[in-house]
Design a protein around this nucleic acid. Sequence first.
DNA 1: ACTCGAAATTAGCCACGGCTAATTTAGTTG
DNA 2: CAACTAAATTAGCCGTGGCTAATTTCGAGT
Lengths: 139, 139
Amino acid sequence: MPAKTIPSRNSAAVEDYLERILELINTKGYARVVDIATSLAISQASVTNMVQRLDGEGLLQYEKYRGLVLTTAGETLARNIARRHQLLTDFLKLLGVDDRVIEHDVEGMEHHISPPTLRAIEALTNQLKRRPSLRARLK
Amino acid sequence: MPAKTIPSRNSAAVEDYLERILELINTKGYARVVDIATSLAISQASVTNMVQRLDGEGLLQYEKYRGLVLTTAGETLARNIARRHQLLTDFLKLLGVDDRVIEHDVEGMEHHISPPTLRAIEALTNQLKRRPSLRARLK
DNA sequence: ACTCGAAATTAGCCACGGCTAATTTAGTTG
DNA sequence: CAACTAAATTAGCCGTGGCTAATTTCGAGT
């Protein structure tokens, strides 16, 4: 059995990067530094920096000037982040929150929702989906 | 009409400080640097620093070695923050999330919930309160 | 009034995650 | 195949918000 990876809490920034990288790979087939930078509205230099860090943390494999791919660990993590993002978006959508506000708030809060809380919100969302009368009462 | 205050986005840190300061004032009648530090689990030096900044931003009045009081602006802001915190806590409580998890998650996410989202969650919470059968379905 | 300990402050440091400017690389194109 | 341009990288900077260590202030008690 190989050495365990140190837990190393993932910062909100790390999660944001992974989320966008996965999204780019899913939609374009690859994630270049310039695309990540544009998507996150930050400079290419900042992206290069972070990508090197994520490589060091084993979340992606990166070759200078060549490109990057997510590792298994990185992809698994990114998928979980994306799923959490989608769940929160669906939830707020059901509550009738405006799309712009949803986007803004989810981007902020998603990094702070633990698995148990997420499961609870998921259960609630599912109930809400099959109770249009209840949803109507929320306006 | 006096000069308008510059919007100046309040950081999560600023909100945390104001929240604790109001809580201390409400429970002990005053908020000393040492109490704020203990409550936030950070050093007294960090608190002194931030308190000076909050004074500069007009959220509290601070006199070296003497103490501090919230300004009207600071108190109003702190009350809104506290209310948002309570609302989120109540909501997750109704969902059956564990108290420890609630505390942790609310502390993280509270700073990212905008007023419209908060209102939507409030409305939902109120419906949930009068539907024990629905609540039961969430377990 | 003095002393002494707790509280507060200052000075100087650090990591994070941004930035710009300058440089290097790679790929396309004439 | 040489040159040009877009992409990427490096170097060096900045603000935020923590920290420790050293110093200063305050106030209580003898």
